[in-house]
């Protein structure tokens, strides 16, 4: 009975959403802004992957805010778990987990680095690459039973990444009068690894920041907050 009432209420809410989309109508082409991005983005930014171009340069200020939201959530988790510590497991992992933990983090880390570095050429960029690198950290944390060595570097890496992201933005502001202007470095030939201005640098900053925040959440889960 309760489920049925909840179903009716949810149907009402979703019907509102469907009515709102009905008024938009079926999209026939790109919007005005997206048309500009698709037509000019190739020359303006020099990146092949338009999604990375939008995330990093055109909407770079929004990305800075979103990364701050992520930082707030991660620090709330770490704060709660260091004030109210929970026990941690003392169970030894079985041989399969132990072997996987020794072999697989290296290739995953390498592949995460590839995704971050080729963010302007192939699908990827800062956010997916950071998640992949955090998965490698997760694999290490699954097998360990005591403190891990990299935990004390996470805060430093996170703050340095955020600082360099903001500084790269202010570089454009000082040199060309526009926050996160992409033309402060040479644009290069689109399609090569060293091209597209400061997009690879900002991708690296976002990737390090996302990876250290997600790994910080996982380390707090394993070791109860620790010494932040």
């Amino acid at each position: 009975m309760r489920t049925f009432i909840a179903f009716l209420l949810a149907l009402y809410l979703v019907f509102f959403a469907a009515a709102a989309f009905e008024s938009f109508g079926e999209p026939q082409g790109l919007g005005r802004i997206a048309e500009h991005y698709a037509a000019e983005g190739f020359e303006e930014v020099g990146a092949i992957n338009l999604v990375t171009a939008v995330v990093v340069t055109y909407r770079g200020l929004d990305t800075l805010g979103e990364v701050s939201v992520l930082f707030t959530a991660a620090s709330a988790v770490i704060l709660l778990l260091s004030v109210f510590p929970l026990g941690k497991p003392a169970n030894k992992p079985s041989s399969i987990v132990l072997l996987t933990m020794k072999v697989l983090p290296g290739p995953i880390l390498l592949f995460g680095g590839y995704i971050i570095a080729h963010g302007h050429l192939t699908p990827g960029g800062g956010f997916p690459g950071g998640a992949v690198v955090a998965s490698a950290a997760l694999l290490v944390l699954l097998g360990c039973t005591q403190e891990v060595g990299f935990a004390k570097w996470l805060t430093f890496a996170e703050s340095m990444a955020g600082f360099s992201f903001a500084m790269l933005g202010f570089w454009g502001l000082l040199k060309l009068g526009q926050f996160l202007n992409n033309s402060v470095l040479f644009l290069g030939i689109p399609g090569q690894l060293l091209s597209a201005g400061i997009i690879p640098l900002i991708s690296a900053a976002i990737g390090v920041k996302v990876a250290s925040e997600l790994s910080g959440i996982l380390v707090a889960y394993r070791c109860g907050g620790g010494k932040e």
């Binding site: 999209p27 082409g29 790109l30 919007g31 802004i33 997206a34 048309e35 991005y37 698709a38 037509a39 190739f42 338009l50 999604v51 171009a53 939008v54 995330v55 909407r59 990305t63 979103e66 939201v69 992520l70 959530a73 991660a74 709330a76 988790v77 960029g125 956010f127 997916p128 950071g130 998640a131 996302v210 925040e213 997600l214 959440i217 889960y221």
Partner: peptide
């Protein structure tokens, strides 16, 4: 020409950050 050949990149760029923030919020 790219204007008539590709899908809209702007919602994809928004959702990209939304997923990562969503997992942090569910951790909280």
């Amino acid at each position: 020409i790219a204007t008539v050949a590709v899908v809209d990149p702007v919602p994809q760029a928004l959702v990209l950050t939304s997923i990562v923030i969503g997992v942090a919020v569910s951790a909280l």
